[in-house]
Design a protein around this nucleic acid. Structure first.
Length: 192
DNA sequence: GGGACGATGTAT
DNA sequence: TACATCGTCCCT
């Protein structure tokens, strides 16, 4: 197990981000999530990772966004209140965690810096890897991220933000080139 | 009912 | 560069 980081000392209880944090444009939330702490209280233990890479999916007009297909049973959660999880299965194997920002938009969590409660060999660089390390799956879809067991808390960031095109959406035409991916510039935990 | 395909990850 | 693996969407 890794030691707790400087902004999460033993005995300190993390402070959850409020609903208002998520009720902003997805590009703003994607940036603001960098440095925050993803927390999962599971099996009597707490797993914590610092968010170091995100992507914004800005709504139905964004051809890379699942809500571009319209309101379906899968995308319905993205049209609901901000601050809930949108979790889906990709390539039949990997779970991806998104934070709903409302009006059909969401932010994909792409990489974490391990902070606490994760196995030393657990990998958190990549959307599919981090859900495995954090024990996140379909059971968390549409659940609130404002309180335990799966929630996001205030964290700290020490490095500038970089941005560039999103990964794996070449089918999305002009939307593929838009710089909607954000990462902590000097983090060694960013994917790829 | 069937088929194409994917916001990925790992092995070859 | 191949491919594992299955839910979702769309067409027949």
């Amino acid at each position: 197990m890794r030691e707790l980081d400087i902004d999460l000392r033993p005995g300190d209880e993390p402070i959850a981000l409020a609903a208002a944090f998520y009720a902003r444009p997805p590009l703003v939330v994607a940036r603001a999530l960098l440095g925050q702490l993803l927390v999962h209280d599971v099996g009597g233990a707490r797993r914590v990772g610092r968010i170091v890479e995100t992507e914004a999916y800005v709504g139905p007009r964004d051809l890379a966004c699942h809500s571009a297909k319209g309101r379906t049973p899968r995308t319905e959660v993205m049209f609901g209140p901000p601050g809930r999880a949108y979790v889906y299965l990709i390539y039949g194997m990997h779970w991806c965690l998104n934070v709903v920002t409302g009006a059909g938009s969401a932010v994909l969590i792409r990489a974490l810096e391990p902070v606490a409660g994760l196995a030393d060999d657990a990998r958190t660089d990549g959307p599919g890897r981090l859900t495995r390390a954090m024990a996140i799956d379909r059971a968390h879809n549409a659940r609130s991220l404002l309180e335990p067991p799966l929630w996001i808390a205030f964290g700290a960031r020490r490095s500038p933000i970089a941005r560039g095109p999103r990964i794996g959406i070449d089918y999305a035409g002009a939307w593929a080139a838009k710089p909607y991916r954000f990462w902590v510039r000097d983090s060694e935990w960013v994917s790829r």
